[in-house]
Simulated assay, not measured.
Amino acid sequence: MKKKGLILLFVATALLSLSTGAFAASNINEIKAILNKDIKFVKNGSSWRPTDDRGSQVLPIVYNGTTYLPLRVIADAFQIPVKWNAASQTIELGEGNGQIDVTTFFSKDVKVDFWSEKSYDVIDKKQLVFEGKTYNGAYAFTAENVGLGWYDGSPNAKFNFGKKYNTLHLALYAESAMKIRVLNANNQQLSKEMSLEEGKVTEIDIDLQGSQYAIVSAYDAQNQAVKPLLYILKDSYVK
């Protein structure tokens, strides 16, 4: 009930981002407000920076002593689906059918581009046995040597999910101990640097912050003579 109450409060007070057609309505009144760059936000006890789907900062608007943020920014922050229905001039919050939209990497809607010496779309079941379990598919690419660390253009796989999502669940297998990180399309980090154990399947959740894209970048932490592969299992999903 707490979460529902919080969302309803924001629905009542948040500044709605609507299409141009909506502003043509006769019951829309022009107001004068200010953007306050000094206001800071704390979400669930941690510092929070409101951003749009491109990762750009969104400044709060202050009008008549009340602070406003776009409804979509709030909805994405609390992982509440929001949709604008232009035909009925209605903002739809939550899942209408009660089902969560989950898309695995098997979906044709998920596209991937690689920036690496070698990359593969692995479908051979013999190459997909990890920790005694056979998986049905994976994307794989060679990681960089540890000596180079992170740099602009580090080996990566860039995923386009076809639309915006809030959460990325990754299932990963590394041939060698590796360091990885996840970025958005603007090369802003969505995760801190994370370590993967050699020969282990690791599952992690990333806050996409309403992004349509994710870049998974990796380097080899052990400086192997032959650059090892990072496998991104297609059981990974977004929701």
Rank of each mutant, 00 (worst) to 15 (best):
residue 3 K to F: 09
residue 155 P to R: 06
residue 155 P to M: 03
residue 159 F to Y: 15
residue 177 A to S: 13
residue 5 G to T: 00
residue 44 N to L: 10
residue 42 V to M: 13
residue 58 V to A: 04
residue 90 T to A: 14
residue 156 N to C: 12
residue 65 G to E: 01
residue 212 Q to V: 14
residue 68 Y to I: 00
residue 144 E to H: 11
residue 15 L to Q: 12
residue 10 F to A: 10
residue 176 S to A: 15
residue 143 A to F: 08
residue 108 K to Q: 13
residue 148 L to D: 10
residue 2 K to W: 09
residue 2 K to F: 12
residue 205 D to Q: 15
residue 94 G to C: 09
residue 190 L to E: 07
residue 232 I to V: 12
residue 19 S to K: 14
residue 226 V to N: 13
residue 18 L to S: 04
residue 105 F to V: 01
residue 146 V to H: 10
residue 101 D to Y: 08
residue 94 G to W: 07
residue 157 A to V: 03
residue 31 I to W: 03
residue 236 S to T: 07
residue 234 K to M: 09
residue 186 N to G: 08
residue 55 G to N: 04
residue 119 S to W: 10
residue 238 V to L: 06
residue 35 L to G: 02
residue 107 S to V: 02
residue 193 E to M: 11
residue 85 N to D: 15
residue 150 W to M: 07
residue 86 A to H: 09
residue 191 S to V: 11
residue 55 G to T: 07
residue 104 T to K: 05
residue 43 K to R: 13
residue 111 K to T: 11
residue 215 I to E: 09
residue 3 K to Q: 08
residue 149 G to W: 09
residue 138 A to M: 07
residue 52 D to R: 02
residue 20 T to M: 08
residue 146 V to E: 13
residue 28 I to D: 03
residue 39 I to R: 04
residue 21 G to W: 05
residue 105 F to L: 11
residue 52 D to F: 02
residue 190 L to R: 08
residue 31 I to D: 00
residue 151 Y to I: 05
residue 128 L to I: 09
residue 27 N to I: 03
residue 170 L to C: 03
residue 92 E to A: 10
residue 216 V to C: 00
residue 174 A to P: 06
residue 87 A to P: 00
residue 18 L to T: 07
residue 11 V to L: 09
residue 156 N to Q: 12
residue 52 D to K: 03
residue 47 S to G: 06
residue 177 A to I: 08
residue 213 Y to E: 15
residue 89 Q to Y: 11
residue 36 N to V: 10
residue 52 D to Q: 01
residue 39 I to H: 03
residue 25 A to R: 15
residue 109 D to M: 09
residue 20 T to Q: 14
residue 117 E to R: 13
residue 28 I to T: 12
residue 222 Q to L: 13
residue 238 V to E: 04
residue 54 R to G: 14
residue 43 K to Y: 12
residue 130 F to S: 08
residue 8 L to Q: 13
residue 70 P to N: 06
residue 99 Q to E: 14
residue 115 W to F: 05
residue 135 Y to W: 15
residue 25 A to Q: 15
residue 228 P to C: 04
residue 231 Y to A: 02
residue 41 F to P: 02
residue 150 W to Y: 04
residue 170 L to Q: 02
residue 55 G to K: 02
residue 231 Y to C: 00
residue 101 D to K: 15
residue 119 S to E: 11
residue 24 A to Q: 14
residue 85 N to P: 01
residue 85 N to M: 06
residue 61 I to W: 01
residue 52 D to C: 00
residue 117 E to K: 15
residue 27 N to W: 09
residue 33 A to M: 08
residue 206 I to E: 00
